[in-house]
Simulated scan of single mutants.
Amino acid sequence: MRLRRVIFGVTTAAVLLVTGVPATAAAPARLSVSGADVVDPAGDPIVLRGYNWGQWGTVQQQDPADNVAAGANSVRIPLRWWGEWKDGVDSRDTDPGNLSHIKPGHLALLDQTVEQASAAGLWITLFVDSDHGQGAGGRPDNFWTNAAMKQQFKEVWQFLVRRYKTKAYVGAFEILPEPQPIGVDDAGVKAFYDEMIGVIRGIDRRTPIVVGPNDNYSCAHLEGAYTTADTKVVYTCNYFIFSEPLNRIGQITGFRTDHDVPVWINQVGVESGDDDARSKARKVLGAFDDNGIGWAWWTYRISGTNPDTHGVYYADPTAPDGWRVKPAWLALVNGYLAA
């Protein structure tokens, strides 16, 4: 099944919302959810396909236009908050006077990145990543055990939603990727998401929200993520490609059919140096296309210098602009963006 893909390049003032009310600066056109479909502002199904700009601070000036020219209609953008990332990536500000809890320089870079994507007409999924908060690596101090940090995380999201609720092409808010708290079952993870949905909906009732399952966004746990807390929810899970590339397609389509809800893959990717990596990638992206499953490729640019890992571009100090492209991978992924 191939669903029609729609890209919008018009100003929000000229777009009618699904309700028929003209979009304005205070109420920009938004995506929505109808049954198992994500729908565009005109109410037509849209399959979101694009890249992750997932490595903090790597976006280049030409990237939005290049993504659009390749056929992308969306992008996934991070803010890293409370984690152990290298090179000063963590945006958490410990100054008690900063009520946003985000370092000003990091916020300025996030604003710039969101503006670049919005100006290009790419639907943005904004996610806040927290290695500590999600319990990564078995960390016992996380959002399920530390009430003070959980409250700060709520305030981060309240700040971001207020900041971007009137920004054109903000497509979805993805609360927290890859939860993996020790000793917390699916119901406990779902309860966290339901609480956070309420926090966001207290400020913005229109923009869709993305949630995923326990166990590091495992597709096998999708059933445990199902919620009735809100109707504008898009579900997600990870799809890093290993030895059996198509082993999760049935889990995704089965969950989507059983609950009549959309599923979009926040991260699909494979390490370039893996055996048969390109063949596996074609199988998975082809299956996504055949089943109308949206996706964001992990990742567009990666800050590491190893050409055999993830990333269509990788860092190379000997290159004129500091980046080296993998031409075969660029052609492969781009070939499925306009499917």
Rank of each mutant, 00 (worst) to 15 (best):
M1T: 10
R49M: 08
E155T: 10
P177G: 06
W82V: 06
P307Q: 07
M149I: 03
D93Y: 11
H310E: 06
C219G: 13
A108W: 04
V161I: 05
A277R: 07
L110V: 09
P45T: 03
V170P: 01
Q180Y: 01
D186K: 15
W157H: 04
Y235S: 09
P181K: 05
F159I: 06
S32D: 14
P64C: 05
G335W: 11
G250I: 07
Y193H: 13
F255D: 01
L110M: 06
V10S: 12
N98R: 11
D275Y: 13
G224P: 07
E174Q: 14
L109H: 04
T19W: 05
I182W: 06
P213W: 01
R324F: 11
A42C: 04
V68C: 11
A65L: 12
G286D: 04
F143Q: 02
G304F: 12
Q61N: 09
M196K: 03
D275G: 11
Y235W: 09
R324P: 01
N334D: 14
T309V: 12
G269H: 04
A187Q: 15
V170C: 06
I302S: 08
N214F: 02
T236G: 08
Y51F: 14
G35W: 02
G183K: 07
H132A: 11
P140G: 03
I7D: 02
V47R: 02
V15W: 14
W56I: 08
R201C: 06
I102F: 08
L285F: 14
Y51A: 04
D321N: 15
D260P: 08
G133R: 01
R139S: 10
W82P: 01
R162F: 08
M149A: 10
A136Q: 05
R256H: 03
G83L: 03
A26Y: 06
Q151D: 09
V68L: 13
W81V: 02
T11D: 09
V33S: 12
A220L: 07
V263P: 01
Q158W: 06
W297K: 06
M1G: 09
E195F: 03
R282S: 10
G54C: 14
A65H: 05
A69K: 11
N266I: 04
N238Q: 13
G198H: 05
G57N: 11
L109P: 00
G250P: 05
N266H: 10
D258K: 15
V170T: 07
A287S: 14
L31S: 02
Q158P: 05
L16I: 03
